[in-house]
Design a protein around this nucleic acid. Structure first.
Lengths: 249, 249
DNA sequence: AGGATAAAACTTGTATGATAGGTTGAATCA
DNA sequence: TGATTCAACCTATCATACAAGTTTTATCCT
């Protein structure tokens, strides 16, 4: 077993670090920056030091810091804009929505599974909304239902009103996490909804959809959590059935 | 109103585009790349063209493509590693967890609100788990409870077992979205848990925590959804009470 | 002094060119 | 056939430069 060239020691049993994808300088920078934000107790809209400053502190090129910033910007931990220093970003569901959309597109989760997660979350939002909603919110929900009824032949508008309706319910819970989750889960399905809707040709079928929403709104307006849950279940059963009809396995 | 130097037309009423932060070339690249992935119907682990190729196609520098790649990599839509071409990324909850952690750290949502979202999701996971769990999963859950009991004086281990327990329940639902959501919501609270745990000094208080988990596991093992939900509610009530004791508003 | 305004200083966005080091597959050798 | 080597390719990082957007400072006019 004579080696001519021993440039590489006999493949020294793959180091444990070789399994995890080696830490890059950008990764370190990302951590350093998040640590900075956390360490300094920065809050939304507070501004960060410039890229150049971080580069100097960490002893890396601005390229590295830029890519780290871009990473953080992608998950909305910071906000970047030309000329201005980066600021700490606000929490919105867009990242979650992107992640879920990607999971759907690449068939890592099915529309049914997404719907089921929505059901889990919304079972709670309707119940909470029924007990916490203000009168204005109740009125708003009923108004949104009317808008859905008017828009039932315009898929785009219908979809927007639908999302607005479910998010409005989530808003009434007074827990900002719920609207974010509902919006994310809902908007991730913007691409599968059209296929389902296409199978509801006749007006009656579309009015059925409007009606289940109306029932939910009424139950919330009446302050009846149980009725709201029941109505929500009807909503989701209808959706599940429609998915099957549309041919989703 | 005479202008000496008219280098700028009278501030022509802020264009609508001026409100939204100007689109950058990186943004365009991000869209182009996601469109490419979607358009080509790429699935997890499929590999993308090189940065240089995209740069050529889009007529921009490699810098721009790199930052676009890094953005997509941050939300796990693609995976990058030195030497290898980028691949389409798998769906895991890390992005959601990061987003939620940031929201908590910057006090955009409170621990209570996070717990309430968990309750919403887990109400469903325990019910589904109770009706769908395999015998192996039931045994695993009970084993995890024992590990929690053993580890009740080691916060770090306790936390990991706790997360593993709730994720294991979510896994038994056969819906991959649930473990992701539960893991995200749970791990986002790694930082607030210690403060709560510190207020459970005596062994009895800690055993109470173990016991509520045991009740959940038993109900799931018994295939009783209602009992599982009831046990879960006890779990969350205990947590809510502990949060108050620990001084969270 | 006060307030509008222009200039300077700073910051991010993008481009170019280089190099080091990781990955892959084809050619090669035992 | 199977292990090895090597060349081609690709990403990670750096240094430098410049355009364009923002903020701060200095300036000027009233």
């Amino acid at each position: 077993m004579s080696k001519r060239h021993p440039p590489v020691p006999p493949a020294a049993a793959p180091s444990p670090a070789a399994i995890a994808p080696a830490e890059t300088r950008v990764d370190n920078a990302v951590r350093a920056i998040t640590d900075y934000i956390h360490g300094q107790g920065l809050k939304v809209d507070d501004s960060l030091p410039s890229e150049a400053r971080f580069a100097e502190w960490l002893g890396v090129s601005r390229t590295v810091i830029r890519e780290a910033f871009k990473s953080l910007s992608a998950i909305r931990i910071i906000e970047m804009r030309a000329g201005r220093r980066a600021r700490v970003g606000g929490f919105d569901g867009s990242v979650i929505a992107l992640s879920l959309t990607h999971a759907l597109r690449t068939e890592q989760i099915s529309p049914q599974q997404m719907w089921d997660a929505r059901r889990a979350v919304e079972r709670r939002t309707v119940a909470l909304a029924a007990s916490r909603r203000s009168d204005a919110e109740a009125a708003h929900l009923l108004a949104l239902v009317e808008q859905m009824r008017d828009a039932r032949h315009d898929l785009a508008r219908m979809t927007e009103h639908d999302i607005a309706f479910h998010v409005a319910i989530a808003n009434a819970t007074r827990n900002p996490l719920f609207p974010v989750l509902v919006a994310s889960l809902t908007s991730a399905m913007r691409e599968t909804n059209p296929m389902v809707w296409r199978h509801r040709r006749d007006d009656e079928a579309r009015l059925d959809v409007v009606r289940v929403h109306e029932d939910i709104a009424r139950a919330i307006a009446a302050g009846d959590p149980d009725a709201a849950c029941a109505a929500l279940d009807k909503h989701f059963d209808l959706a599940a059935q429609a998915l099957l009809t549309a041919g989703f396995s």
